[in-house]
Each structure stands twice: as structure tokens, then as C-alpha cells.
Design a protein around this nucleic acid. Structure first.
Lengths: 184, 184
DNA sequence: GGTTAAGTCGAGGGTGCCCTCGAATTCTGT
DNA sequence: ACAGAATTCGAGGGCACCCTCGACTTAACC
């Protein structure tokens, strides 16, 4: 999988790291659309060097977000371990959006059309898998409105992304109202 | 109020109209951020002429949206005429977002920080007034969750704007779930 | 018809972002 | 130390949008 061509030269490895750090920070602070020039500047590296290491924005995304998205598995597993199906589902939503609220980049990744990064896509699919299971369990237990589906959750996620952007202090309240409407 | 300076020359009046028509169409189709050059092109007028008549984007907004926002009064009055407080409130939301779904420009106007156009601002205030009354009535009747406020409705509106943009076919379903969570 | 104020036009300058490429630099192995 | 390969740099071209301004055109009034 990892095509180990010649290892990077020392200075190159250092620059690559600085770029990754800068990109991670800026994505989290300002979202996925931060200008690449800003990333280069924060990394104290020229724009040309940036393009050498990461020819496209998606190359950054592919390097940065798989780790971030691992958190999805963590909250997914936690929810699956919760015995009460309703608690599991509602808690999962809470955890999910707390995650999004902490990281504008993550918020963007989950809310918009997926970036062209296979690892990111598969992490999202895994997340959707967890969510699907939680929904099914809640449906089986009869605690969730009977017509709820994963597609509704996708819609909710985009809506929540917007609420988080506009009024970071109010997403929890908004979510709790919506969730109230979900009970069977 | 209307400073009736010299009337416009015939050709100027014609161009002004063409610009207004083009802007109305394009705002509705593509939202408030459509490039001004596109408006000029559709109006078959040069960019310089556009700036002569409408020095800023807000000048367009100020001319176009007060009419559009009159619809807010219509649905507001309709809702106030409805005797059942819950029906009135829920129906109002439905009508409001149906309006937004029909016109991307309106969707933008209602969802983002208000444009610098006094007439638009006051129309929105009037709308908020109606909504406030409907909320109060529903609260008084005990059919709406007791802590609901106009601020929640503002949050909802931004969320709905996003849902409408992303998946125009699903806003009604999303809204109905949220509204379900609102009942007392 | 001639005068002139009003209106029109569009090239062009400014900004912010994207991305490329050749010259200059620096690491690495011998 | 040196050669050669790898890496860095940043000026600069491209694009999309914003907005201005002076030369040209035209409607309006006598």
C-alpha cells in the first residue's frame, strides 16, 4: 500500500511536516477553503514548495482527515455499547455534532460533497454504517419514528453544519428540539 | 421621502428596467451572490451602465426585495386569521419556507446578515413581529414547548436555508420532524 | 437642426486566489 | 570536497470578480 520510494530528504521531510501542521490548524480554524497561500505562509515555506508536496487541496485532506475521522469510530463504538437504543442513538448525534463543532474543517468535510480522498470516503462510510445500525436498533425497539432513515441523518448533518457555523452556541439546543421530534 | 429629482431619460428608464428584470431573475435562480457582470450581460447593458443605476449590490436588493417580502405579510396575516394557535404557527412555518424554497435570493436574504437596505430590514422586522405573535399565542395556549423563542426561529431559518440549498426536495420532511419536536 | 446635459460604453486597474516553471540552493553519497 | 540529484523559491501568468473614468453617443428642449 505504502509505496516506499526513496525516503524524503531531511529538509523536505521537515517542510512536509510543517505544512501538515499548518494545514491542520488552519482547516480547523477557518474551514476547508482556507487559501493555500495562507497555509504556506504559516508553515514558513514557499507556495512552490507547498505544491511540490501537496499538488491539490485534496492531498492535504487525504493526509489530515483520516485521523480526525477515527473519532467517528470511537463515538460509534461507544454508542453501540450503550444498551438503551434511544440513548445510544441520541448520544451518538450529540457526540457527532460536538466533534463537528470543534473543528470547522471536519464540519466542512462531513457537510459537503465528499472530497476525492478514498480514505476519507471510507471513513465516512464506516461512520454511516454505525449510524445505520443505531437507527435500525432504535427502530426495532420502536423508540424512533418509523420512517426515519440514514438519508434524514445526512440532511440533518448539513443543517447542523450550518447552525454550527452561524451560531456555535446554539447547536445543542437546536439538535435537542429536532431529536425531540424523532421519538416514536 | 421619494426625492423626485428630474425624471429619467427614456433610454435610461428602459435600461434601469432591464437591469431590474435581469437582477430579479438571476437572484432567484442563483442567489444573492451572482456576479454583477452577469446581470449586466443578461440585461444587455454595459457594466458601466449597471453601476450608474445601482452603485452597489444592496441597491439592487433594496429595489427588488421589498415586494418579495410583502409575501411575508400575506402569510403572516393568513396565519393570524387561523383560529387554532398550533395550526397558525405550524402553517406559518410551512408557508415561510415554501417561499424561501421558491427563490434562492429570498432564501439568502432571510438566512444571512441583513443587507444594508432599510426597507428590507423593516420588512424582516415586520415578519419577525408576526412570528413573535404566533409564538406567543401558541405559548399562551400551551401547545408550544414553553421555552421557545424568536431566536430559535432565526436559527431554524438559517438551517432551513441550508437544507433548501442542498436538497430542495427534502425541506418539508426536515421541517416536519423539527416541528414535531416543538409541540408541548 | 443644434446645443447640451444625461447616459452609455468598455478598456483597464485593483484584488485575491490559483498554479507553473526555471534559476538558485541544499542535501547526500562517495 | 565535489557532483549530481533533490528540493526550494517566488516572480509571474491566468482567472474571476470588483469598480472607475474619460471618450463617445443620444435624448430632450429650444
Amino acid at each position: 500500500m505504502v509505496t516506499a520510494s526513496r525516503p524524503l530528504r531531511a529538509d523536505a521531510a521537515r517542510n512536509r511536516d510543517k505544512l501538515l501542521v499548518a494545514a491542520t490548524e488552519l482547516f480547523a480554524e477557518r474551514g476547508l477553503d482556507v487559501p493555500l497561500e495562507h497555509i504556506a505562509r504559516r508553515a514558513e515555506v514557499s507556495i512552490g514548495t507547498l505544491y511540490k508536496h501537496f499538488p491539490t487541496r485534496d492531498d492535504f485532506v487525504a493526509q489530515i482527515f483520516p485521523q480526525r475521522l477515527a473519532a467517528l469510530d470511537v463515538i460509534g463504538d461507544r454508542a453501540l455499547a450503550e444498551p438503551d437504543p434511544w440513548q445510544a442513538f441520541a448520544g451518538y448525534l450529540d457526540d457527532l455534532y460536538a466533534l463537528q463543532a470543534e473543528d470547522r474543517g471536519l464540519n466542512d468535510v462531513l457537510a459537503r460533497d465528499l472530497p476525492n480522498a478514498p480514505e476519507v470516503v471510507s471513513a465516512c462510510h464506516r461512520g454511516a454504517g454505525h449510524a445505520g445500525t443505531l437507527i435500525d436498533r432504535a427502530l426495532a425497539a420502536g423508540v424512533l419514528r418509523a420512517d426515519y432513515s440514514i438519508a434524514d441523518l445526512a440532511t440533518l448533518t448539513r443543517a447542523m453544519a450550518q447552525v454550527i457555523r452561524d451560531s456555535p452556541g446554539e447547536w445543542r439546543r437546536f439538535l435537542s428540539i429536532y431529536v425531540e421530534g424523532l421519538r416514536a
